[in-house]
Design a binder for these strands. Structure first.
Length: 617
RNA sequence: GCCGAUGUAGCUCAAUGGCAGAGCAAUCGAUUUGUAAUCGAUAGGUUACGGGUUCAACUCCCGUCGUCGGCUCCA
């Protein structure tokens, strides 16, 4: 997201040119279609069209076929500079292009038309002329660059993948256009490789694995976005909570608990109402007309706890933590498995501190992020400093620009001083302050914010939160809102995909499966399982009437880390034969030896399955 | 919320206007097995829900709900 296109120049040209060729194919078949913008994007390109009727899958096939024909004819791309007059004449029947032309000329048209998408926002010199590119019978408004000839494009290196609606200029108040996505590479092999990777990614999709591994599901009668956690899911959640509680205890947090519903007054004070109302479940109205809302956030209640007694500078920082359950009425089309739900439990905490404590507290949260990420082996993420935008002041953002600039700089300096890499993204802040978000990607490539660490310089004042400073005067504290482990929903969804369902032993719902070879070994297996369970391990016995091979297959399918096979030999020797999830057969060993090897791995939350050089995933 | 696609047994999928089927899972029986699928039998359905067209609807049409791919939006 930060870098819009970091692809090689030639690939950029190929994708960009394919977008034009597609527009030709589309307008040939549907002369009424009005091309709007069509940039190259990661892995391919898209083009948005204003059309009377949405495209069908058959249309896509026809477009693709026609595109291949055009490419194989070897047509050339030619650039031409035209005056504004000429450009308007050329695109007289296309209001979208005219709007783009106006935007270009006014110089203010920073709205990410095609031209913006084409070039990193480097040179601000506005063109006095406008460039158009012509290939074959098709001419498009475009900054370029393009391939010289379609001979540079491999006709088997691209594929049209999907059609969908998209708002003109990404604004839902604008008309809806029809977008066609394509993927494109320089060679057929790269395309096939990409398509294969997509297939593999689908196997890791948490929605698929979550069902297969019986972690969670949705039920029509319960409602969209309201996951039901099965026993396996509850185990994972409780392990995460245990981890968070240990970590937060170490970092000086105190736990609090707050109700799920509150009077409207609280959210009026916090400023969520009416601003945030559309993301909240509608209120319940009591007989006396008083409205109660289900909470979408925990902060106002934590503020009340801070305010429940006088606070001295000596008490600060005060860190209040709660795995709070919140409900947000997300639009139906925005729901996405566990990654975007309507009921969620947040790894929430609010840190109230004096300004001079900011850096220490803020960076302690960042340190916590890093500690968690190391534990989970999370490497593919981007820390994003999300800042305000001037145009959002007074609307999306608290209207106090000097304070924004000051706070953003505080964050920037803290991050730089501690050498934590980050990127900056304008217009992504919370309404009360800047934040460091941790961006991650789902198996199928969608971007989400996992953890967040937000500075709030505004809301404490609304709640009249104060502490008495050294001079005996009242002072408003800063508040940090933080959720290093995200919500249970998003965290578990992410972890399912991150591990491909093969959780490290400490998180695995079932850690050990006892596999008796014949019925006569069942009792011994039950004794072993009892002993492991008494120790604190999650062990089960597969006493079905299946053969051992079948039991192994089932346990593998559930991605259980340890399979203990037991026959006459093991029973008679008080032993177990250890098979790891990765297929390794460690042969028979005394039960005590198995425990001695595995228990430390579980309690230390290690990633590996077995000590020494053997274990893997 | 918007555009499009889609919804058949617990799961994965057949059946293109003419009696709704298979594999896996489940249940029962037999088998007692040494590191990724033993054999047999049984049961399982108001084809998401509600209307309509038709002699006849899983199939065609309309509506509702859910899901999926995007747009918008977010932890």
């Amino acid at each position: 997201m930060p870098k819009r296109h970091n692809m090689p120049e030639q690939l950029f040209k190929i994708r960009h040119s394919l977008a034009h060729i597609m527009a030709q194919a589309v307008t040939e078949r549907y002369p009424d279609a009005r091309p709007t913008i069509g940039p190259p994007v990661e892995n391919g390109f898209y083009y948005d069209f204003a059309v009377p009727r949405p495209f069908t899958p058959e249309d896509l096939e026809a477009f693709e076929k026609r595109m291949k024909e055009i490419i194989q004819r070897g047509v050339t791309f030619e650039r031409k500079e035209v005056s504004a007059e000429q450009a308007r004449a050329l695109f007289a029947n296309n209001p979208f292009k005219l709007e783009l032309i106006d935007g270009l000329l006014s110089g203010a048209g920073d709205d990410m038309g095609e031209e913006e998408a084409d070039e990193p926002s480097s040179n601000n010199a506005r063109p006095t002329t406008i460039s158009v590119y012509t290939h074959d019978t098709f001419t498009d408004l475009c900054r370029g660059p393009h391939v010289a000839s379609t001979r540079e494009i491999n006709p088997d290196g691209f594929k049209l993948t999907s059609a969908s609606g998209a708002y003109w200029r990404g604004d839902e108040r604008n008309p809806m256009l029809q977008r066609i996505y394509g993927v494109a590479f320089e060679t057929e092999q790269e395309l096939q490789h990409y398509l294969h990777q997509m297939e593999e990614a689908k196997k890791r999709d948490h929605r698929k694995l979550g069902k297969e591994l019986e972690i969670f599901f949705f039920d029509d009668e319960v409602g969209p976005g309201l996951p039901l956690w099965q026993p396996n899911g509850a185990i994972i959640i409780e392990e995460l909570e245990k981890l968070a509680k240990e970590m937060e205890l170490k970092h000086g947090y105190q736990r609090v608990r707050t109700p799920h519903v509150t009077k409207e007054d609280l959210f009026l004070r916090s400023g969520h109402l009416p601003y945030y109302a559309e993301s909240m479940y509608p209120p319940m109205e009591l007989d006396n007309g008083v409205k109660y809302y289900i909470k979408p956030m925990n902060c106002p209640m934590h503020h009340k706890i801070f305010a429940s007694k006088p606070r001295s500078y000596r008490d600060l920082p005060i860190r209040l933590a709660e795995y709070g359950t919140c409900y947000r009425y997300e639009k139906s089309g925005e729901l996405f498995g566990l990654m975007r739900v309507r009921s969620m439990q947040m790894n929430d905490a609010h840190i109230y501190c004096a300004e001079e404590q900011f850096e220490q507290e803020f960076m302690d949260v960042i340190a916590m992020y890093l500690e968690y990420f190391r534990l989970f082996g999370i490497e593919k993420y981007v820390m994003r400093l999300s800042t305000h935008s001037r145009k959002g002041l007074g609307k999306k953002y608290v209207d106090n620009e000097p304070l924004w600039l000051k706070t953003e700089d505080m964050v920037r300096r803290a991050m730089q001083k501690h050498n934590v890499p980050y990127v900056e993204q304008e217009d992504e802040a919370a309404f009360y302050g800047p934040k460091i978000d941790v961006q991650i990607w789902s198996a199928i490539g969608r971007e989400f914010t996992l953890a967040t660490n937000q500075v709030d310089f505004a809301v404490p004042a609304r709640f009249n939160l104060v502490f008495v400073n050294r001079e005996g005067k009242e002072e408003t504290p800063l508040c940090l809102h933080r959720a290093p482990l995200s919500t249970h929903e998003r965290m578990v969804g992410f972890l399912i995909e991150h591990y491909g369902g093969a959780f490290p032993p400490w998180l695995a719902p079932t850690q050990v499966m006892l596999i008796p070879i014949a019925d006569r070994h069942n009792d011994y297996c039950r004794q072993v399982a009892e002993r492991l369970v008494a120790l604190g391990m999650r062990a089960q016995v597969d006493d079905s009437t299946e053969r051992m091979q079948n039991k192994i297959r089932k346990a593998q399918g559930q991605k259980i880390p340890y399979m203990l096979v037991v026959g006459d030999k093991e029973r008679d020797a008080g032993a177990v034969s250890v098979r790891l999830r990765n297929g390794e057969d460690l042969k028979a060993m005394p039960l005590d030896q198995f425990i001695a090897h595995v228990w430390p791995i579980i309690t230390a939350r290690k990633a590996e399955l077995w000590p020494m050089e053997t274990g893997g995933a």
